[in-house]
Each structure stands twice: as structure tokens, then as C-alpha cells.
């Protein structure tokens, strides 16, 4: 899948690119509105990550131009440090598929991209094989063989998030932000995530060994596939 990263901060663009490249995305980058325009007119992308505050213009204009092009179905995720509610509303009204306020977690970006893919194209299979387990995103269930494992909503969310970001260490904080939302001040301690992970692991381990479900001491978790 092709991704165009429109971001004027070079190092931020490069970090995003590095993360996504490992997931097999093909990355294209633009740091100015003008060069972004050129690339947009020439190529089709599966994803456009759009920073609104560009040095030579407003990213929202780019979004509007893109939406005027015929036969385009590029998914757009707006990235902005403005953080204002207006930006979010304007971005979504102008046709963005999602909105991520800076500073965001790369694991969150990836999860959003997966969600958009499922929603828009319905191409990606709704089931993931996680060793002997099957994760169904559509029905939000996890099963072992034919046996359904009874997970709580939060346990499923955590499992799903770790599976989407497989083979990576995901800090607890990223999980908290994803499952509970970004609540100011409130997220300062996220140890209660452990309780859910403990229960999740217990439920999974009843069926098969789960040594692929790693606890990275004092940091977070990793699911190796």
C-alpha cells in the first residue's frame, strides 16, 4: 500500500516513514504544499497523512483540492499540532477519514490506518491468525479452533491493538491512550492496564501456551507473530 506523508518537519516524517515501512507500506514524502500538490495529481495513494500547518499554505486546501479530483479514493488522516476542535471538525468536514492530534503514538496511527482500510475497502480479511488463535475484527471475537474465548470489551481491544502492532514493543501508555482515550492528567498512571492483560493472558493460556505474548519488563507488551 502506498502512503504519502505530507509533513514539513523532516525528522517527524522520517520517523513515521520508518515505522510504516516496517509494516510493508511504500512511502512517499512531501514537505511543502507545492510538492505535495504535484505528487497528489500524479499518483494515487492508499493513504495520505496530512499535516495541516505547512509553511507555504494550509493543508486543508490540499484536502479540498484532492476531494475535487475525480475517481480518487485516497484515505486521508489529518495530523495537526493545533489540537483545536475546529481543526478536527474542519478536517473531517472537508473529507478527511480520521484525525490525529500531535503528539500521537505511531502504534495508534497504524491502528487507525487498519481501521480505515477495513471500513473503506472491506478488502482486508477480517480475521487474523495469531498462532493457534483467530481474531475476528468484524465480530470482535477471539476463538481457539472453533471454541470462542469470552473476552471483555477492553481485553479484546488490548489484544487487537497488540496484534495490529505485532512484533513491536508497545508501551503501556499507548495501550491506555488507545483503549481509554487520551484523558488529560488521568492517564498519569497506567498500571491498571496490567490487570486486564493478566486476565487476557490467563484466558488465552487456558487453551494453548502463549510464550509469543511477551511482557517487556517495566515498559509494555509485545506479541510476536
Amino acid at each position: 500500500m502506498n502512503v504519502l506523508i505530507i509533513e514539513d518537519e523532516k525528522s517527524l516524517g522520517l520517523e513515521i516513514a520508518e515505522y510504516l515501512a516496517k509494516e510493508g507500506f511504500i512511502i512517499d514524502m512531501a514537505r511543502r504544499k507545492k510538492s505535495a500538490e504535484e505528487k497528489l495529481f500524479i499518483n494515487n495513494y492508499d493513504f495520505i497523512l496530512l499535516d495541516l500547518g505547512l509553511p507555504d499554505g494550509d493543508g486543508l486546501d490540499l484536502l479540498k483540492q484532492l476531494k475535487e479530483l475525480p475517481n480518487r479514493d485516497d484515505a486521508v488522516i489529518v495530523l495537526t499540532a493545533r489540537g483545536a476542535l475546529d481543526d478536527r471538525i474542519n478536517g473531517l468536514e472537508a473529507g478527511a477519514d480520521d484525525y490525529l492530534p500531535k503528539p500521537f503514538a505511531l502504534s495508534e496511527l497504524l491502528a487507525r490506518m487498519h481501521a480505515i482500510t477495513r471500513r473503506k475497502h472491506k478488502l482486508e480479511k477480517n480475521e487474523f491468525k495469531v498462532h493457534d488463535f483467530t481474531l475476528n475484527i468484524q465480530n470482535r471475537t477471539v476463538s481457539f479452533g472453533r471454541e470462542r474465548i469470552n473476552l471483555t470489551k477492553k481485553e479484546f481491544e488490548i489484544f487487537n491493538y497488540l496484534v495490529l502492532n505485532k512484533n513491536r514493543v508497545i508501551p503501556r501508555l499507548n495501550i491506555t491512550e488507545h483503549v481509554w482515550g487520551d484523558i488529560l492528567e488521568v492517564n498519569s498512571d497506567s498500571n491498571f492496564v496490567d490487570v486486564h492483560v493478566k486476565n487476557l493472558r490467563k484466558k488465552l493460556a487456558q487453551h494453548a501456551p502463549i510464550d509469543w505474548f511477551e511482557t517487556v519488563r517495566s515498559i509494555g507488551y509485545r506479541i510476536n507473530i
Binding site: L12, E15, Y19, A81, G83, P103, A105, R168
Partner: peptide, 15 residues
């Protein structure tokens, strides 16, 4: 927020 954003993504990649 922009520099924080850069650092966060960089650290996540380093991890």
C-alpha cells in the same frame, strides 16, 4: 507539541 511529536515517534522507533 511538534518537537514532542518528533521525540515520541523517534523513541517509539528506537524501542
Amino acid at each position: 507539541l511538534t518537537p514532542i511529536s518528533i521525540l515520541r515517534t523517534r523513541l517509539e522507533n528506537l524501542l
